[in-house]
Design a protein around this nucleic acid. Structure first.
Lengths: 205, 205
DNA sequence: CGGTTTGTTTGTCGTTCGATAAACAAAGGA
DNA sequence: TCCTTTGTTTATCGAACGACAAACAAACCG
């Protein structure tokens, strides 16, 4: 595959990262193509040529977001030895990510387009699908804990516990958006983990 | 105060309720004045004459929302005899409200404008202020439990517990938005309340 | 070199945005 | 009745929206 024609004068990776930062700060509908073109340092027609429509660009942005900011929580789930440690580390990694000083204080997946104009329905459902993936990923990790023998729970318990911790993750994002500090989020996580032993001991509840 | 001039041909209360429904469904930026005028059955100029700007209208809408959908959770906090029962009933009232068949499945306060264009910063902060009021209201109810003798907790505990249950409320809204059923929310609430005894017994933690 | 391919710039498409001025309509007061 | 007051309709403002066509620029190929 030899390079043909005029080479690109901008780096698509850098431009995509710039677009990510702007969508992250202003939301999907709050970011215009003019905003994007200006921040990316190119004309809007170049955005269309390289990335397709605004919606296409946004989907590529969310893929990048998943492999960058989304990775630490996922890694925590994957690498911790027990289900309990995995959930706890995932919550703390999430809190770390949404209180970084150099980025907006919330999860992009959760808050850039929960509602909006009728014509952007597809974008909202795309994001909702990925949020539902969060739930599935957490549930799968709990199931692994059952298989590994470090967690005793029925399938119905797994559903409830997975949805519960997904709810906490999503609530944390609103808290950080409204100014909660890392320490305050840590206190919330401590509370959330206090439920664990009760939830996973068959005697109580 | 006698009626002077041409009387209004529409009912401002009904028009406000119609505006509420539209803002609720499409978010603040996703709802245009054209959408509003059409749904309210009047010209956009009549909206300006009666309610002021789009932002003024939205603030009036949120006041109405607070006294309607916002009331059941607040009443639960107020009327239940103990702090524990109050928190539990508040969570269930919230779940009831955000899964009603006739309205969108989320809390308007939380999801109609968490992010957006720079020029709507004031609207977002207005909503954030009211969300922070949620936290304060919950904390005040916990403090009343301490005063009533049905709850033993330090001031730092009150902060953490109040923020924790605020986080759960806000997470529930995202869950309902993404399609969680009332029964699934109930399971999440059961998990969230499982933390209560651990959090409020001085021995553990 | 000319020809082809690809990227970028410029300009503009039709639409919609929030907001308002001007014209018209319907009530009370004198 | 005519004036004043208030509400509504109509038309439109300038700006911004997402999207794209056409013209121009810079690389490789033969």
């Amino acid at each position: 595959m030899v390079a043909r024609g005029r080479p690109r004068t901008f780096d698509p990776d850098i431009a995509l990262r710039t677009a990510l930062d702007l969508f992250w700060e202003r939301g999907y509908e709050g970011t215009s193509l003019n905003d994007l073109a200006q921040a990316m340092g190119i004309a809007s027609a170049s955005i269309y040529a390289c990335f397709g429509s605004k919606e296409d660009l946004f989907r590529k942005v969310m893929a990048l977001y998943g492999t960058t900011s989304g990775e630490p929580p996922r890694r925590a789930l994957r690498e911790q030895p027990t289900a309990r440690a995995a959930i706890h580390a995932m919550l703390r990694a999430t809190a770390d990510e949404i209180t970084r000083p150099d980025t907006p204080h919330y999860c992009m997946l959760i808050l850039v387009a929960p509602t909006g104009a009728v014509e952007n329905h597809a974008v909202r459902e795309f994001l909702a699908d990925r949020r539902r993936d969060m739930y599935t990923t957490i549930k799968d990790r709990l199931a692994r804990g059952v298989a590994d023998g470090d967690l005793t729970a029925s399938p119905a318990d797994l559903d409830a516990i997975a949805r519960y911790y997904t709810t906490v993750v999503q609530g944390l994002s609103v808290q950080a958006r409204d100014g909660a500090t890392r320490a305050e989020l840590e206190a919330v996580i401590t509370c959330a983990m206090a439920a664990w032993d009760t939830l996973t001991s068959p005697a109580t509840q």
